[in-house]
């Protein structure tokens, strides 16, 4: 369904000629139809940039993105338009992702209008109302404005807007991190229900590891623009290979004080280095307690250690 090959996105640094932010650097992965890939990593590691580069909000610096076998990374805006129908995005902040000057009906109908799907207003209304019903919002709210809704309701409006074109791939850019916990489950369950009903493929970005475990078939871990580990969801929790993944898992809060006391403290120390001048060799060596001279000098290769378990670390050569 989706294949990403050596995808790279660098942003130029203002005022410093020739220097760039290495937001996303040589990412490879494949995603089959109906699967969910969860992407995790610290803030600023390039998860959102990756998502936005795949959906072509940003132009990729190099590398390719294949959607159903077609390379979409070099397409012009006009050539991209039919692709947009296959690929949609759900945004992080339900407050800023809906236009405050438009009614809900207009917001959800916008994709229909952009692709000229409906010929009559009645046809359009029917599709919009059906979609509203599917996300559990009453049709009587169609003429209200976004600011009148709660966060969870707004996120469902965002989902309705993304799904009304019946896309096959949906990129969820932290769709739940701006919501409170009771609503998070509601939204995630809604997303899962749509996946079953419409056979959707998700690229699910989050920093909540327990939520990622619940929704994902595969989990990818990102660090400073690199994908450091990628495998089946259960495998990564039971058998993490990369020291960074271990550290991340070690920092998941445990909802029981007794168990939490027994747990070791998080293994990762220090701050994420600057993506403008990332460390040489393995980018994690500055914070890795297993780091050797080799890690500083040589970048680890992206390799399949066991079946479907990819990792980039010299410890597992």
């Amino acid at each position: 369904m989706l294949e990403v090959k050596e995808l790279t996105k660098h942003f130029p640094v203002k005022g410093k000629r020739g220097r760039v932010v290495h937001a996303v650097d040589g990412i490879n992965f494949k995603l089959r139809k109906g699967e969910t890939l969860g992407l995790v990593g610290e803030s600023g590691c390039g998860k959102s940039t990756l998502a936005r580069t795949i959906i072509r909000i940003y132009e990729p610096t190099s590398g390719q993105v294949f959607l159903k076998g077609q390379d979409i990374s070099g397409l012009s805006v006009r050539e991209l338009k039919p692709i947009r129908k296959l690929m949609q995005m759900i945004f992080q902040d339900p407050y800023s992702s809906l236009n405050a000057r438009m009614t809900i009906r207009d917001i959800i109908a916008e994709p229909l209008r952009a692709h000229k799907i409906c010929h009559t207003k009645a046809e359009e209304n029917e599709l919009v109302f059906e979609m509203l019903d599917m996300v559990g919002l009453g049709t009587e709210h169609a003429l209200r404005y976004a600011h009148e809704f709660s966060g969870g309701q707004r996120q469902r409006i965002g989902i309705a807007r993304a799904l009304i074109l019946r896309p096959e791939l949906v990129i969820c850019d932290e769709p739940i991190s701006a919501l409170d916990v009771s609503i998070q489950a509601q939204i995630v369950n809604l997303l899962k229900k749509f996946q079953e009903d419409l056979n959707l493929t998700y690229l699910f970005i989050a920093h909540d590891l327990s939520m990622v475990r619940y929704v994902s078939d595969k989990v990818g871990v990102m660090y400073l623009g690199h994908l450091v580990e990628l495998c089946e969801a259960e495998e990564i929790y039971n058998n993490p290979l990369h020291p960074y993944t271990k550290g991340l898992l070690g920092s998941v809060p445990i909802p029981s004080p007794r168990l939490a006391r027994q747990k070791k403290k998080s293994e990762i120390e220090g701050d994420i280095p600057s993506p403008i001048s990332p460390p040489s060799g393995c980018r994690f060596h500055t914070r890795c307690k297993y780091a050797t001279e080799r890690c500083k000098a040589e970048a680890p290769k992206w390799q399949e250690v066991t079946t479907n378990h990819f990792v980039a670390c010299h410890l597992h050569d």
Binding site: R52, I55, I57, L80, K81, R84, K85, M87, Q88, M89, F91, Q92, D93, S96, S97, L98, N99, A100, R101, M102, E110, P111, R113, A114, H115, G158, R161, L165
Partner: peptide, 28 residues
Amino acid sequence: NSEFVLAARTIGSNSTTILFRHLLPNAM
């Protein structure tokens, strides 16, 4: 650069729609 404009772009709305339906009404 706000998310609703990015959303409009991922939807595939053209520049005229984005400028006159999204940007200018919000800047009014």
